[in-house]
């Protein structure tokens, strides 16, 4: 931690430079998305567009079935967020608040799967998904989240561990079963942690590219991330439209970030997961 008052001016200078470098790409992305293709070719990086081509946004919305992609993305996000929070909370409770033999081992396995590369399970999972007839269905992506996600189980378990034992004890005295304790005590107390999990799952699903690439083949079912990639190859010469589409795709995540900045930051600093 740097505290010397006399150092302030150069720290401020460095901070200014660093944040300018980091945010400049975003700024030019937004300004570029508002320039006509002609202006973009002539003056790609002028920060303020000469004429504001809001039309780029309408054009890029119309050059791909944006509504369909967006609807699919939202369906996926809602499904996955519900699936993950539900399943992970249950499992985390079982791993933290219910004593049973083998619990330690199970938790060890959870942590182990957290660090496994997805490659190794990619092909067999594909086979499994197509065997049960979920290929080319959004369920191919949603359903696995109902079976728990190691990172989030880990996060929730750590949180559940901090709930004072006295509270649960009081519940038990009132005759609550584990199920009752889970719903009436642990869940209400864990809303911040659950929100973190939901938020991260939301962002993860919003950004997910590999899943749709593998499992979906009907453009009527494509989510935005995948639809946008398809868009890149067919519109590689229309940078202004690509930028507008990228901004549209990014905007919700950014807004979400500003709304839930604290949750984001806390989530990342306690688990080290990338959003």
């Amino acid at each position: 931690m740097i505290k010397h008052r006399k150092n302030r001016w150069w720290i401020c200078g460095l901070l200014w430079v660093a944040s300018a470098i980091f945010s400049l790409p975003l700024v030019v992305m937004i300004s570029g998305s508002l320039k006509s293709s002609e202006e973009l070719a002539r003056n790609p990086y002028g920060l303020v567009p000469e004429s504001w081509s809001w039309n780029n946004y309408l054009d890029s919305l119309q050059s791909m079935p944006f509504t369909i992609y967006l609807t699919n993305t939202i369906l996926l996000c809602v499904g996955c967020v519900v699936g993950t929070t539900l399943s992970c909370a249950l499992v985390a409770y079982g791993l933290s608040r219910v004593p049973w033999r083998g619990r330690g081992l199970a938790f060890g396995l959870v942590v182990a799967t957290m660090l496994l590369p997805w490659h190794i399970t990619m092909i067999p999972r594909f086979v499994l998904i197509s065997e049960i007839g979920l290929y080319n269905s959004l369920w191919a992506i949603i359903l696995p989240t109902f079976l728990g996600e190691a990172f989030f189980i880990f996060l929730l378990r750590q949180f559940f561990m901090t709930i004072p034992e006295q509270l649960l004890e009081a519940g038990r005295i009132d005759g609550l079963s584990h199920w009752g304790l889970f719903w009436n005590i642990v869940i209400p107390l864990s809303k911040p942690a659950l929100a973190t999990v939901g938020l991260f799952q939301f962002v993860q699903t919003w950004n997910d590219f590999g899943g749709p690439l593998l499992y979906l083949n009907d453009p009527q079912k494509f989510p935005l991330a995948y639809g946008l990639e398809r868009f890149v190859s067919s519109y590689s010469d229309q940078t202004h439209l690509l930028l507008a589409a990228a901004v549209l795709f990014t905007l919700p995540v950014i807004i979400l970030f500003f709304l839930a900045q604290k949750t984001f930051i806390q989530g990342i600093s306690t688990t080290g997961i990338k959003g």
């Binding site: 950004n207 995540v253 950014i254």
Partner: peptide, 9 residues
């Protein structure tokens, strides 16, 4: 902020 930008974008 850059780290929350979706990879595709």
């Amino acid at each position: 902020l850059p780290s929350v930008i979706p990879v595709v974008a």
